[in-house]
Amino acid sequence: MDEPQVPDSPSEILVRDAPDRSRFEITVDGTVAGFSEYRSRPGRIVFTHTEVDEAYQGRGLASRLIRAALDRARRLNLVVTPLCPYVADFIRRHPDYLDLVDEAHRAQVSG
């Protein structure tokens, strides 16, 4: 008799700010799977680069990472400057974050 198949347990996915490295990180089961680098300025966060390790691509991790980072920016009342193309595109696809973007970049992001 075959043993029943037990589905893989769901991965633990966490997003955290790593200010000592100036980036938000997304981890899968404790392993850093991707990050979004930023520069902090008074009252502002400037997103400069986002990447997800090739082994973790296609799982929606970059979107989850950016959503968490933007939600934190909102909670802290930070203005967002999306120099990173992925962050700009994410905001373009999710206009509920457009109000966070600084005036100089809002027209570029609103598409």
Rank of each mutant, 00 (worst) to 15 (best):
M1R: 07
M1F: 10
M1I: 09
D2N: 04
D2P: 09
E3W: 06
E3S: 14
P4V: 09
V6E: 15
V6I: 12
P7M: 09
D8T: 15
S9D: 15
P10N: 13
P10E: 15
P10T: 11
S11K: 15
S11Q: 14
S11R: 11
E12S: 11
E12D: 13
L14M: 13
V15P: 12
V15R: 05
D17Q: 04
D17H: 00
D17M: 08
P19V: 08
P19E: 05
R21A: 13
S22H: 15
S22D: 14
S22T: 13
R23D: 05
F24E: 04
E25I: 10
E25P: 07
E25D: 12
E25S: 10
E25H: 11
I26Y: 10
I26D: 09
I26H: 06
I26V: 15
T27G: 02
T27H: 10
T27N: 05
V28Q: 05
V28F: 07
D29F: 02
G30C: 13
T31W: 05
T31S: 01
T31Q: 11
V32K: 04
A33C: 10
G34K: 07
G34E: 07
F35K: 01
F35I: 03
S36C: 15
S36D: 07
S40D: 14
R41S: 09
P42I: 04
P42W: 03
G43D: 01
R44P: 00
I45Q: 10
I45W: 01
V46D: 08
F47D: 07
T48I: 14
H49N: 07
T50R: 02
E51W: 03
V52N: 02
D53W: 02
E54L: 07
A55W: 03
A55G: 01
A55H: 02
Q57K: 13
G58N: 03
L61T: 01
L61G: 02
L61Y: 02
A62R: 01
A62T: 02
S63C: 05
R64G: 11
R64A: 06
L65T: 08
I66E: 05
A68R: 09
A68L: 04
L70K: 09
L70S: 12
D71P: 07
R72H: 15
R72I: 14
A73L: 08
A73I: 10
R74M: 05
R74G: 02
R75H: 13
N77P: 01
N77R: 08
V79M: 10
V79L: 12
V79W: 04
V80G: 03
V80F: 06
V80N: 03
T81D: 05
T81F: 12
L83H: 15
C84W: 11
C84D: 13
C84S: 15
P85Y: 11
P85W: 13
Y86A: 09
Y86V: 08
V87E: 05
I91C: 09
R92P: 00
R92E: 11
R93F: 13
H94Y: 15
P95Y: 03
D96H: 11
D96G: 15
Y97C: 12
L98N: 01
D99E: 14
D99K: 00
D102A: 09
E103K: 12
E103A: 14
E103L: 03
R106F: 02
A107T: 12
A107P: 06
Q108M: 00
Q108N: 03
V109W: 07
S110F: 00
S110H: 00
S110Y: 00
G111H: 00
G111E: 05
G111R: 04
